[in-house]
């Protein structure tokens, strides 16, 4: 019998790209279930279609364009599909979802060489493309009928962040209360329940899939920047709690900014990355033309990751 010969080590930890992605999928489940409960069948359809499109597109690109073995088994396309669906309004038509998937997988991920090679987070790139291309659809927060719980009438129309423009900062701040933790008003499908998202994040921490530094530094920076501006002029600038709980900050900080591929590898690099996102998102919200800035903030900081990685190295043994 021909025995195997290889250099050491001869055993391997029970971890694979697939197992890590599976953990992320599990962590996204609570938020996904909440969105199904609120928006009903149409949201289930959007998510299923988004996941199917992403997986299909990755398979097509591998098979017919790159002529190499399929990489869909690592489940990363499934994660992208779920995140893309969570970043879209619940009334998005399926053809728009498909375009988003084409941009996310085809452009943002596979053109760079597939998993691990992309510069920008695929799901966010897809979302931003749609936001810029179809602004009307992407800001139509009409709630489709069929939600299982919640007062549907109260939700239609603008999101909380848009209401800042309509009602003013003070009124908007007043609308954020404890109930926002459980069910935010309209917005992207995945943002409804802060608690469900945080539960998934804690799961990822417990499973040691991610480190908390990026997420915590985003939260801290958003709170700090918002707190300072709010203290200066409460009439113009919304407060810390409002900004933390709205507009995908939690979804972005827990699941998008922590994407391995597009975030720095060192702990301190992660902190810088998080602070950068926090500052950018607040600047876009306060002074930019988009009410929500998380996607842009993450994409901009994604671009800076190679530089951050260059600057921060971990401490080496026996060296100053």
């Amino acid at each position: 019998m021909a025995y195997i010969v290889s250099p050491n080590p001869h055993i391997h930890a029970k971890v694979s790209t697939r197992s890590l992605m599976l953990d992320v999928i599990i962590a996204l489940c609570p938020a996904a279930v909440v969105s199904f409960l609120f928006y009903g069948l149409s949201e289930i359809a959007i998510m299923a279609f988004s996941v199917a499109s992403c997986v299909f597109l990755e398979w097509v690109v591998n098979r017919y364009m790159l002529h190499r073995a399929s990489s869909t088994g690592d489940l990363s396309a499934v994660v992208t599909g779920i995140l893309l669906a969570m970043n879209l309004p619940p009334s998005t038509p399926l053809w728009v979802v498909f375009i988003g998937a084409v941009v996310a997988i085809g452009v943002a991920k596979m053109t760079f060489g597939g998993i691990g090679q992309n510069i920008w987070n695929p799901a966010i790139t897809g979302r931003v493309f749609l936001l810029v291309s179809f602004p009307a659809i992407m800001t139509d927060w009409t709630i489709p009928a069929g939600g299982l719980i919640g007062n549907v009438d109260a939700f239609s129309g603008a999101t909380l962040l848009q209401q800042v423009g309509l009602l003013g900062a003070k009124a908007a701040d007043a609308m954020v209360g404890l109930e926002t933790l459980f069910s935010n008003m309209g917005g992207s499908a995945g943002e409804i329940s802060a608690l469900a998202l945080l539960a998934g994040w804690v799961y990822l921490l417990v499973r040691k899939v991610i480190k908390p530094w990026i997420t915590l530094s985003i939260f801290a920076t958003v709170a700090l920047v918002a707190g300072i501006f709010h203290a200066i002029d409460p009439a113009q600038f919304t407060g810390a709690l409002f900004n933390l709980l709205t507009g995908g900050v939690i979804l972005g900080a827990c699941f998008m900014a922590t994407d391995y591929v597009t975030s720095p590898m060192s702990a301190w690099g992660g902190v810088i990355f998080g602070v950068g996102i926090g500052i950018l998102v607040m600047m876009i919200r306060y002074f930019g033309s988009y009410p929500e800035g998380m996607s842009f903030a993450i994409l901009i900081m994604n671009t800076a990751v190679p530089l951050i990685d260059r600057a921060f190295h971990q401490k080496k043994f026996g060296r100053a």
Partner: peptide
């Protein structure tokens, strides 16, 4: 337990750097 699994792309998870006892 011992056969190496198929190599795939680095996903930049940083586990190798975290595991390295020499930093």
């Amino acid at each position: 337990s011992t056969r190496r699994k198929l190599e795939s792309n680095c996903i930049r998870c940083g586990r190798c750097a975290e595991a390295c006892p020499m930093g």
